[in-house]
Design a protein around this nucleic acid. Structure first.
Lengths: 216, 216, 216, 216
DNA sequence: AAGTAATCGAGACGGTACGTCCGGTCTTCCT
DNA sequence: AGGAAGACCGGACGTACCGTCTCGATTACTT
């Protein structure tokens, strides 16, 4: 199993005039914000509370982040240095299920609750929405798109499918359950999603690889 | 085509002592809140702003609603007396697509943006979350479940499917696109979702009813 | 000796709708502000400090006073319910000296230091400047003008004098010394000011009533 | 008429090791501060604004001045290289009136408004207060004291007067009107102050030199 | 020429206070 | 009892300056 760290390494910046940014302050802010997020959710992670806990001035936070949400998402990534699982076993169903289950797993527990709040906040914070799309949603979609493309080129997946919609039908249910909470994110979810999508539900469509769900 | 009004009629209350609740105030609050929601989104629909615009005291609002979100969702339903479309044509694919397209249609335009904000707010307002589930999500799921059950009993859908997951794979992509905004809610979405789910995407699975998308 | 209280009694207001203003809060603000003024001067009497000490919200202060200076001057008057001394002995010199000495006396000690700060603040706070003029400077000038007018009608003072300038030459030195601090506000100041002004300093002008200074 | 420049020439400093102080920076600070003072008053002349306008770092200002007031007063003198007028005509009244009118003249217009603000600020800035006393108030008092002394030695002024109080009665009204703004600093002020003080206002005191006011 | 020492610019930083907004609660009177 | 009016406390907001603190770059005098 291979994991890709999604956090880009900070590129080496040429020395700029003036006092350099305090790494100490940055770290303290990240830790404080992450702690507050976990303890009391997004509502507790006010700029004031973060500043107080990090022993940092509010201005220092505003200097580097545009909104509460922007700090929160960075703190979230800082704490949960989340990785994207990928594997190329030659079996499309298996590869997809692995990726989706990895996300479902991340969504179980506190990290999922906080992510739900972040997604909620993003509905009224365009910056946060963009960061979430670019640093969270897209990387996963790209890996999944690659798996599906491999499936097509190997003749396992029909070439005329709309990959975007396919990925939505794989991933969206996780976010939907995370946010609406009408059903749990249980262990059977990921394989079922994949199998249903691959085989369809029309009567007569045989389940060609009934073992897919079991082997995972 | 048949439409079901989802808003329950206010039940007749037995006459209570004291001054009866002012219907004038209730309506003014709904109208004011709806106007504010549409003009400036949820952020603009503060209790103070609603009270000022409705010429109503803040206490009157707190008396009948528990939170900003509670007023907002009522105002939303008050303004967009949304209905659930259902039809029984005997064709599962068609019936599902009609329902899903009705929702996609409701999500296009301002009503969709506001709904996204309400869903966002629900992540930190349990009352709002509950109302959304009970009055918005569930009614649609029940109708869709009925369609799927009919499909099963007619032998159009395999009886061993997990209906809950199926419905997620049909509806969740709409909410996902509404909230993440990585792809538009275009007209092809609903039929494609249905067809993909029914037929699957595995190579060799023939598209049994290629006309589904065209006829809608 | 007669003292006139300069603080106007609050006129009876007709009952207005809504919760009436809290007298408790008003008093607490006055006391807190006065304490802070005396302990740390105007610089210590920030809105935040006053609010904290009075156990009152900042908004309540802003609601009733327009600036820090406005609160401070009210608190000053609240604490030093200063009175204007006046007497009509028939002796212009004596009456004037009594009034001026009363002011000099008020200016000695902490009250004078605070007044100096208030006057200083008034240079950049038009509201405060106006209040100082209307409630502090003018009442005294009016009483002094009356004394001088009596002096004129009794034939003790030449009728062609400019009363405004005369009053400046009596009062201004007190404020000048209070503010510039180049000389103290000692006991001899008031009678000397009066005598010099009445008799002039030109050689040959006899001091007609050399006892004026001694009898006070 | 003779004018004395009150600004002391910078004394020649012995060459010290290290980079010498930048005259360019000093001048830029003076100009920037003076401009800001005139445009927006003392409130606008913040250290940050001065530094930005002078293209100078804040530290450079703090290095050479202890407070905002200290910069402001230097900038004030830099811009208004004010001089003290003095003349020895043999006529005490005329000499005094000339000096006082010169000050009144300086106080009319923007320079007076700014001076009022500086005096105000000095109430909470001991350094500024000291500079004002030493470089502004005292030089004028010394010249005036000299005139009065000449008057005494010439037999024009009674020798038993308190010169300090006399000078207060001449100058204080100008500052008082500048600061309290209850009356304007008009052209008749200076001669009237002098004449009243010399002759007194007691009935019977003849105006010995009624032409004083007219000839100026 | 190299070293030393002070200054300067840029700008980040902790801190205090600002004036405002909104959420909830309360008090009073009116209907 | 409901409702309108509005005062109140509390908490957080985002901003302005303050005075301090690194930095690296300059600019003289001193070896």
């Amino acid at each position: 199993m291979i994991y890709a760290d999604l956090m880009p390494a900070d590129s080496e910046a040429p020395p700029r005039p003036g006092r350099p940014r305090s790494e100490r302050a940055r770290l303290a802010i990240m830790e404080a914000a992450a702690d507050l997020l976990i303890e009391g959710g997004l509502a507790a992670a006010t700029i004031e509370a973060i500043a107080a806990r990090a022993c940092v001035s509010k201005v220092t936070i505003y200097k580097w982040w545009s909104s509460r949400g922007a700090v929160a998402i960075d703190a979230y990534f800082h704490r949960y240095r989340l990785t994207v699982a990928f594997e190329d076993t030659g079996d499309v169903a298996r590869d997809l299920a692995v990726q989706i289950e990895a996300l479902a797993d991340a969504f179980r527990g506190r990290a999922g609750e906080v992510m739900a709040e972040l997604i909620g906040e993003a509905q009224s914070d365009a910056t946060l929405a963009e960061v979430l799309r670019d640093r969270w949603i897209q990387p996963r979609r790209e890996l999944t798109a690659a798996v599906l493309q491999r499936g097509i080129s190997r003749g396992q997946v029909r070439p005329d499918v709309d990959i975007e919609i396919l990925m939505d039908q794989l991933y969206a249910p996780l976010y939907y359950r995370l946010i609406v909470r009408h059903q749990p994110l249980d262990k059977t979810l990921a394989p079922t999603l994949v199998r249903t999508l691959l085989d369809g539900v029309r009567m007569g469509n045989e389940v060609l690889d009934p073992g897919t769900a079991d082997t995972m």
